[in-house]
Amino acid sequence: MRFIRQNLRWPTEAPQEGGRVFVSFVVDASGSIRDAKVMKGLHPAMDIEALRVVQLLGY
């Protein structure tokens, strides 16, 4: 959770009241993240940002 808080950049066009974006992904044997997809979104800009941060988890 700390990593997500430190790397998340809240889009200016997204609602400021907050919320949650649910993302599904697979961690493969090498530790890479693949098949990331938004299962329940909040706002299109926030959904894109959530996917970006999830992709960073695999590095």
Rank of each mutant, 00 (worst) to 15 (best):
Y59R: 15
H43T: 07
R34T: 14
I33K: 13
T12C: 06
Q16P: 03
H43G: 09
R9A: 12
V26K: 11
L42F: 12
E13N: 15
R20A: 10
K37E: 06
R9H: 11
G31Q: 08
V23F: 01
R2L: 14
T12K: 13
V23M: 07
L57Q: 11
F3S: 12
D28K: 12
M1S: 14
R9E: 15
A45H: 01
V54Q: 07
M39C: 00
R5L: 11
H43E: 06
Q16E: 12
Q6F: 02
G58N: 05
V38Y: 01
E13Y: 08
L57E: 11
K40A: 09
N7P: 02
K37M: 02
K40Y: 05
I4Q: 04
A36R: 09
V54K: 05
E49F: 02
L56P: 05
G18H: 05
V21D: 04
W10H: 13
G58E: 06
E49W: 02
L56D: 09
A36F: 00
V53D: 05
L51Q: 11
R9P: 00
G58V: 02
R52N: 10
E17T: 14
D47V: 01
S24Q: 15
R20P: 00
L42K: 01
R9S: 14
R20D: 07
V54L: 04
P44S: 06
V53N: 10
R34H: 13
P11C: 13
A45E: 10
V21G: 09
F3E: 13
F3H: 15
N7R: 06
P15N: 07
L42G: 03
K37R: 10
L57D: 08
R34N: 09
A36D: 12
L57P: 08
P15K: 00
D47N: 15
P44H: 04
G58D: 08
V21M: 01
V21A: 08
R34C: 07
P15A: 08
G19Y: 04
L56V: 10
R20I: 00
E13M: 06
A14Y: 00
V21N: 07
L8Q: 05
K40I: 01
L56R: 10
L57H: 07
A50Y: 03
V53C: 07
P11H: 14
S24C: 06
V21S: 12
R2D: 14
G18E: 08
S32G: 12
D47Q: 02
N7C: 04
R2P: 03
G31I: 04
Q16R: 12
A14N: 11
D35Q: 11
V21K: 01
D35M: 02
I4H: 07
D47R: 00
I48D: 09
S24K: 15
V26H: 12
M39A: 04
H43K: 04
E49V: 02
P44V: 01
S24R: 15
H43S: 08
E49S: 12
L56K: 12
